[in-house]
Nucleic acid binder design. Structure first.
Lengths: 206, 206, 206, 206
DNA sequence: TATGAATGAGTCTTCATTCAT
DNA sequence: CATGAATGAAGACTCATTCAT
């Protein structure tokens, strides 16, 4: 049982990863299920043993992607000790450091975004994104709030706004990197996070 | 001639605007040329008198969109006097104020992003986006540089990074608004731009 | 307009007749839309300009068949003068005479019957059949009733039963002819209708 | 061995009966082998231990059906004494009385008929049907011939025609009952057989 | 012997594009 | 110029059948 379950799970992820590659390079609509099967080195029909439809598979890729990047990011946060500012910097850095790892599947993110607008899968993705952003913003907000309670940050900072904006900034820097290979999102994030921290800092900061 | 050219241009933009609506609601792949023709109240074949292909039409919609939003944004900048900080705030505000106007075609942006990854139209869109972001960043950078020269902003601010990040932030706040109708991008941008300005400000700012 | 409507109707019936041939020889499930297109000498996609689906086309064939046979049969009845017995004989004969004409599409009838049981198209066909049989039985019943009123037939004959049975008999004789090419439905119908008429006749018949 | 053979036969008929249900409700083409396996509460592969193909299984269902109904009908005949007329009436009644029992698998009959036209299984079914009808007609014919020899029926009755027609009528009355649940095949058969008997009767009948 | 995971041939259907009118 | 009927390439999906366990 366990063995076969293991096999099944293995094959499932083989398919998901193959699909991720194909969706990333051709887009959702451009991807051909048969190609995914070839990439996964299985029969075309087998895909339908694991997923109800192409759309379903795409959503599975979405979840795979969330898990993959989400866990990478989260790890770096829990581990941290220092000041709120340091932790923000660390978070920023670790997110941007994902870039190299993510680069070749970043196209997926745009496909996910697009999927949230094409009426077919709209709600499913839109809901997931909303929830994801909610969590993300909440995480950053709590980091800032923490810094505020420690006296690192000024009390009049609009926490929610800053959290939302920072989350967005990280997303968008990767997007710019996607469009321009000469653009360095890590450097940009570093330079920027310092300004933001400075902007939130209690007056007596140097 | 001029009259007929005028007619031609009119019909062309009728098609583009109809296409924008359809692409926005169905996505590029989901949009059906015949639907666009119906929306534009013309014959299906007529579209091919004005555009070589569906892809071509999509690119025309892209250009139409850039023009539409770009001009709206740019206007607000040129007109401005005041301090660099004020101008940044004004820029931020005017961009976010586009939201209500853009909302119903914002799905297009995600389609454009996605198009920049589907190998078919990839380069065309990718190039356009790179160029667009370059200009955008340059604009913001020049604003900051200006503020630096006036002594408003500290000289050690990493101009390019902040410019890139701000441009990204605005994009991404709209994205979050797209996913969550309760999210207010205007408020978030306002709260955030203040922090950023504060962060760049020469020490003696209050 | 009229010309193009004419063309359209022509093409539609070209398709229906091609479909009738293919459905008759392969059965509904075994028929391939592409084959029908080839038979009709049109492009595969063209079929979908005229019919929403294979099922729809099949139903159109059904209607075509009903019309084709129905009208042939009805004609022979209206024209008749003689006694009720003569008219029954004539009806019987004219129905059976359809056999040669119908023979090569009779397989269709069985497909229609089967369609009335496969849950997919069930109701549509079942309703049509019920209605068709209702009309048929009513027709025969009125013929018998007429004979009864003229005093040709005994008053204690169960009109509805005889009508239903006769209608069924004709159907079933063709069915037997279908299974056995040596079986002569015309002769059988002739021999039988005489017995039935005899059985309904007022006692003083010779 | 005997025990295992018994088991084997049991499982075989479990499959056949499950198949009968599924074929009856979905039609031959619409039936899915996997569904049959589920109905039979066995593994999908097991079916292929007992039957070479779906078609084979379908034919087995056909034989099962013939056996099931055939034996039921035949029984009632052999047992009879009485006059030829009485025996015809009894046969008619017993066939029609099968209706309630058959009703829910009657769809199968239409599938069998249809199968005799789809080129794939055509001959196999067609032959079986021809043979079945031959036997049936012979049975009825012998009944009539018997009555003729006893002097019950007139000598000029066309035995073969009446036999064929009667056999057909019974079939067709069930068909009409299938299409219209309000139609009572038993009543119709009763009313009709009397007329037919009357029609064959020697003149001196009351 | 029984099983069900794997397979790929086979089909319906869609839709961008063409072109005769 | 404008049109929309015709087209066929392309692709998601189904399912009978096989075969390793």
């Amino acid at each position: 049982m366990t063995v076969s379950d293991q096999l099944k799970a293995d094959k499932r992820s083989r398919i998901v990863e193959a699909a991720a590659r194909v969706f990333a390079s051709k887009g959702y609509a451009g991807a051909v299920v048969a190609d995914i099967a070839i990439q996964a080195e299985i029969g075309k029909g087998t895909i339908y043993e694991y997923f109800d439809s192409k759309e379903d598979l795409f959503f599975a890729v979405f979840e795979w992607y969330l898990h993959r990047t989400g866990s990478a990011a989260m790890v770096s946060i829990g581990a941290l000790g220092g000041s709120a500012a340091e932790r923000l910097q660390a978070l920023s850095a670790s997110l941007m450091n994902l870039w190299d790892e993510i680069r070749d599947v970043f196209a997926l993110v745009m496909e996910f975004w697009a999927a949230s607008s094409s009426s077919q899968m709209r709600q499913r993705f839109k809901d997931a994104f909303r929830q994801g952003y909610d969590q993300y913003r909440a995480l950053v907000a709590s980091l800032i709030r923490d810094g505020m309670q420690r006296g690192e940050f000024r009390p009049d900072v609009d926490i929610e706004s800053v959290a939302a904006a920072l989350v967005g900034t990280w997303d968008a820097l990767l997007l710019q990197a996607w469009f321009d290979s000469r653009f360095d999102p890590i450097a940009a994030a570093n330079g920027f996070i310092d300004v933001v921290i400075q902007g939130m800092a209690s007056t007596r900061q140097t």
